[in-house]
Amino acid sequence: MSAKFSYQRAVSIKDAAEATGRPGTRILAGGTDLLGCLRDGVFQTNRLVSINNIKELKGIRSRPGGGWRIGALTTLTEVAEHRQILESYPVLAQAAASVATPQLRNQGTLGGNLCQRPRCWYFRGQFQCRRKGGETCFAEAGQSLYHGIFGASQCYIVHPSDTAPALVALDAKVSIAGRRGTRLVPMSSFFVLPKDSLVKENVLEPGELITEILLDAPLTGTRSTYRKVRERASFDFALASAAVVLVMAEGKVRTARIVLGGVAPAPWRSTEAEKAVVGKPLDAAAVAAAAEAAVKGAVPMADNGYKVPLVRGILEETLTALSA
């Protein structure tokens, strides 16, 4: 059982923002990550503020002028099964469906999936690592089987979210409420790397919470997919994944957004891989060039060299699938 904390229910977004601005307070949504962290003592809290009774944070609604808005409390099951999400944004529906298990998807929210803490076994274990304010990264000399090959500096976590790469690939925006109003942040700027902060994974400040995710209407000719590889067929985080969104026109790739998961401290956009396919027909040569470009600059650790050919393979597979 976790250490004691007090509990209150926020009645409005403003109420939630004010309550969470106070030190030692954390927001409770689905709780699937938070309660595990509290139980394992990864961090402590004096007080939980539940936002689960704030109706305006729930559900999927169409936006005037096209596109969709997904409330932060929408469950992953709801995202994965929503007819319009399935039709217009398969990459997102597939990513949500690939998370964990039916129970965790019934409970876990889209906002929470974006804000979950890393799964590094040193961070989760009883190690005072840099991400917990310590002075050592234990993965550097320790076991690095599930750590990153991109974007590391002093800390080698990978971002565990499946929906995050999909939303970056879709160029979604995240609406953030704070004590002084709301701000809109592109999904591609929402996550931070260790070089920007060693102790947090996104731009949220105390007293801020995600209220909704905004999706633009897909352009004609858009194709998208999410591919996740894990050690077992379900109930696991990605060893590596790829979210790919292409806009095709006249047999050629007009625009491409290729974002990798499970390999970096944030969803890892590969503009090199995108450049390798844009303006070209999606033939075997372009696919191979993109797969090779995606792993350029990878820095494997002692135990995770397998992620390099894995990423290459995932991209060959997804791009080939989208070329049909």
Binding site: L28, G31, N52, T77, N106, Q107
Partner: peptide
């Protein structure tokens, strides 16, 4: 620890009783 909450399956170990 799976239970149904309003007919939907969830893990009761990750659900606070107050919730």
């Amino acid at each position: 620890c799976t239970v149904l909450i309003d007919g939907i399956s969830r893990y009761s170990c990750l659900t606070l009783a107050v919730e």
